[in-house]
Simulated assay, not measured.
Amino acid sequence: MKTKMTISFSGILMMLALISCSSEDKKNDTVGKPASASKKAEMNMVVGIARIEPEKGLLNIYANANGRISKIVAAENQSVSKGSDLALLDNQTDNALLAIEQSKAPAQNAAILSATQNAKAVLSDLQKAQKDEALNEQLFKARAITEQALNDSKSKVTRLQYDYQKLIADIAQQKSKVQEIDANIKYRKAILSDRQIKSAYPGRVLQWDVHDGDYVTPGQKLGQYAPDGPLIAVTEVDELFSDKVAKGMRAEIYSQMNGQKTGSGTVVFIAGFLKKKSLFSDENTVEDRRVREVKVLLNTGAKVNINNKVDCKIYLK
């Protein structure tokens, strides 16, 4: 009986020892892990593909009139100033029409000058005739002249008044013609201006889609132009993380060729709406994801070229 009791007690001790070891192992495992291991790691950045653009955007060059390109003035990659010619359309006909209108102006101005001088002379004669008429009125009352002489003086005043009014009307008509000529000259100059394709900002021509001699139509895209100024990286942030990005956050860009950092900057623009993925998305993907456009103003010294595709990291903290 004593032997049986001893075996049972020994078994109980072994079971307690095993339970104690198991509990100790679990405790040791818990102590060995960091406190944050049980929590999900916090995200401190978002990464996306970005395209490098001028801050003012890439500008397309358009034709404003029909015609053939007579000369591409600014070559690709050439820097130009504001208002300088980029390309010229054939303008021989328009120059000829402008010359015709401009030739009319001197003759018309001469006609106005002549009519004005004649009007002054007639006015002088009219004023003298009116004085003579007043004098003849007194002489007739004094019976110093005949009634016929008085009537002749009145007729002369009437005739001179008619001549003067006619000259004034002619001068007004001549001036109206001058205004019409001036309007035609401005119109012809405007047409010629449309045949001169000029730069809106200082910048650089990136590419031409046309060549000398090509026929173009109004609104046709001729090339692309990059205004001078700071560069931006335009990227897209997935809708899952778009609310985490804010203006003023620090960003860095990296080359897709070798992974090296090529610049840094600050978030300056966040679109107020979501849109479909743009050219940054994989053409083969069928996933319907929404993104928010974000623009990063790059610091001076960034080693990038316009239209480069780069990796963009935006630091959330």
Score class of each variant (00 low, 15 high):
residue 225 Y to L: 12
residue 166 K to N: 15
residue 239 E to V: 10
residue 174 Q to H: 07
residue 219 G to K: 12
residue 239 E to H: 02
residue 226 A to P: 04
residue 213 G to Y: 06
residue 240 L to D: 13
residue 235 T to W: 10
residue 166 K to W: 01
residue 180 E to V: 03
residue 163 D to P: 02
residue 188 R to F: 14
residue 175 K to L: 04
residue 200 A to V: 13
residue 162 Y to F: 10
residue 196 Q to A: 10
residue 189 K to A: 12
residue 169 A to G: 11
residue 255 S to E: 12
residue 241 F to N: 15
residue 220 Q to H: 08
residue 170 D to F: 00
residue 238 D to G: 05
residue 169 A to R: 10
residue 228 D to T: 12
residue 255 S to F: 03
residue 250 R to Q: 13
residue 238 D to C: 03
residue 219 G to L: 03
residue 179 Q to I: 05
residue 234 V to Y: 00
residue 242 S to N: 13
residue 182 D to Y: 07
residue 170 D to P: 04
residue 245 V to L: 07
residue 205 V to N: 11
residue 224 Q to Y: 00
residue 184 N to R: 11
residue 232 I to T: 05
residue 185 I to Y: 07
residue 195 R to Y: 01
residue 252 E to A: 15
residue 181 I to D: 13
residue 180 E to R: 06
residue 199 S to Q: 02
residue 183 A to V: 02
residue 200 A to H: 10
residue 245 V to W: 05
residue 161 Q to I: 00
residue 241 F to V: 06
residue 194 D to H: 13
residue 231 L to Q: 13
residue 184 N to G: 14
residue 208 W to T: 04
residue 230 P to N: 15
residue 213 G to F: 02
residue 217 T to G: 07
residue 240 L to Q: 11
residue 237 V to K: 01
residue 251 A to K: 04
residue 214 D to R: 13
residue 192 L to R: 11
residue 165 Q to V: 03
residue 193 S to D: 15
residue 203 G to E: 04
residue 223 G to A: 10
residue 252 E to I: 07
residue 240 L to W: 01
residue 191 I to A: 04
residue 211 H to D: 11
residue 191 I to E: 12
residue 250 R to P: 00
residue 198 K to A: 09
residue 217 T to C: 06
residue 180 E to L: 08
residue 251 A to E: 03
residue 175 K to A: 06
residue 159 R to Q: 15
residue 253 I to C: 01
residue 247 K to G: 10
residue 208 W to K: 08
residue 254 Y to L: 01
residue 214 D to Q: 09
residue 205 V to T: 12
residue 253 I to V: 12
residue 237 V to N: 10
residue 251 A to W: 06
residue 184 N to Q: 11
residue 245 V to R: 05
residue 218 P to W: 09
residue 240 L to V: 07
residue 169 A to V: 07
residue 239 E to A: 08
residue 193 S to T: 15
residue 249 M to G: 01
residue 163 D to S: 11
residue 247 K to A: 14
residue 239 E to C: 08
residue 245 V to S: 09
residue 255 S to K: 04
residue 227 P to L: 10
residue 175 K to G: 03
residue 233 A to S: 09
residue 239 E to F: 03
residue 232 I to K: 15
residue 186 K to Q: 14
residue 189 K to S: 11
residue 162 Y to I: 12
residue 161 Q to E: 10
residue 250 R to I: 04
residue 198 K to I: 09
residue 214 D to F: 08
residue 235 T to D: 07
residue 225 Y to T: 07
residue 170 D to R: 05
residue 218 P to C: 06
residue 163 D to A: 14
residue 229 G to N: 08
residue 190 A to C: 01
residue 205 V to I: 15
residue 223 G to L: 06
residue 202 P to C: 08
residue 166 K to Q: 12
residue 218 P to E: 04
residue 207 Q to V: 09
residue 190 A to K: 12
residue 230 P to G: 10
residue 208 W to L: 06
residue 205 V to W: 04
residue 202 P to I: 06
residue 247 K to V: 11
residue 197 I to Y: 03
residue 190 A to T: 10
residue 217 T to K: 15
residue 195 R to G: 02
residue 158 T to W: 06
residue 246 A to I: 05
residue 170 D to A: 13
residue 171 I to S: 05
residue 187 Y to A: 14
residue 163 D to E: 15
residue 199 S to M: 05
residue 222 L to A: 03
residue 165 Q to Y: 12
residue 185 I to M: 05
residue 188 R to T: 08
residue 185 I to R: 00
